[in-house]
Computed example of a mutant assay.
Amino acid sequence: MPEILQSFNENLRRQVKVYEDLNVLERNKQKALLKNNLQEIESITAREEQLLLEAGRLEKERLMWAEHIGRDLGKEPQDLTLAELAEHFPILQEVSHDLDKVVGDLQEIHEINTQLLQQAMKVVEFTVSMLTHQEKNTYQHPSVKENEESRKLHLLDRRI
């Protein structure tokens, strides 16, 4: 059992490292979002994709170790929580705390970035709406009579 616990602990430590790296990227993405630096956002997103693949691989490995530990404890792996395991095995307490903290931090910054992206999308939607659905001509020669068609200015023709 100690060998399995050591492997499980090491897996969780690698996951903490991946999530810390994701956290740094999310903070960098936030700066890029504020600067509206699309190339940097794209670059960060590509690096995040790689880290998420690694996190998925580590999670599969963690489930394998949890299955071994669950058999020894007489529980199904999906019924085991890290907090419960940390109570049974003190070796896991530190990594459990670290994982909770880094995931909480990541969740916070991700929520802020989500809000920033939603605001940016609202600006884009508003701009497109203004370009395609403006209700009145801004500039018009006084001799031109207004009719229904001349009241609408469409910089982009939606029919195309």
Rank of each mutant, 00 (worst) to 15 (best):
V16D: 00
I4V: 11
L156A: 12
S96W: 06
K145Q: 12
L38Q: 11
K145T: 07
P2F: 11
L117C: 11
K29A: 07
V103H: 00
Q39W: 06
T127E: 01
L80I: 10
I160C: 06
N28H: 11
E94L: 11
T114Q: 13
E61Q: 05
I112K: 09
N37I: 13
N137I: 06
L34M: 13
D72P: 01
R159Q: 08
L117T: 06
A66G: 00
I112E: 02
I41R: 03
Q78V: 03
A55E: 02
M130Q: 14
L5M: 02
T127H: 08
E76D: 03
G104P: 00
L22F: 00
N137V: 13
K145A: 01
T114F: 12
P2G: 07
A83Q: 15
T127A: 11
E54W: 01
L153N: 03
H110L: 09
Q30W: 05
K75R: 14
E135N: 09
L58I: 03
K75F: 12
D105H: 12
E54K: 15
N9T: 08
E40V: 15
E10Q: 09
D98W: 09
V124F: 08
I112Q: 12
Q78L: 15
H68A: 05
P2A: 15
Q134F: 01
K60A: 09
E61D: 01
H141Q: 06
R62T: 02
N23I: 09
H133S: 11
K35T: 13
R159M: 01
L22C: 02
L82G: 06
E94S: 12
K145N: 01
E76W: 08
G104W: 03
N137T: 13
H97M: 14
F8H: 08
M130D: 03
K75I: 10
H110S: 13
H133R: 09
A46V: 15
H88K: 15
H88D: 13
L63A: 00
E54H: 02
P2K: 14
K101H: 09
I160G: 07
E49G: 13
K60E: 11
I112F: 04
L51T: 07
L116S: 05
R57F: 05
Q39I: 11
L116Y: 06
H97W: 03
L73W: 04
S150A: 04
K35E: 11
Q6N: 05
L25F: 02
V102W: 04
E111K: 14
N113L: 10
W65R: 00
D98C: 09
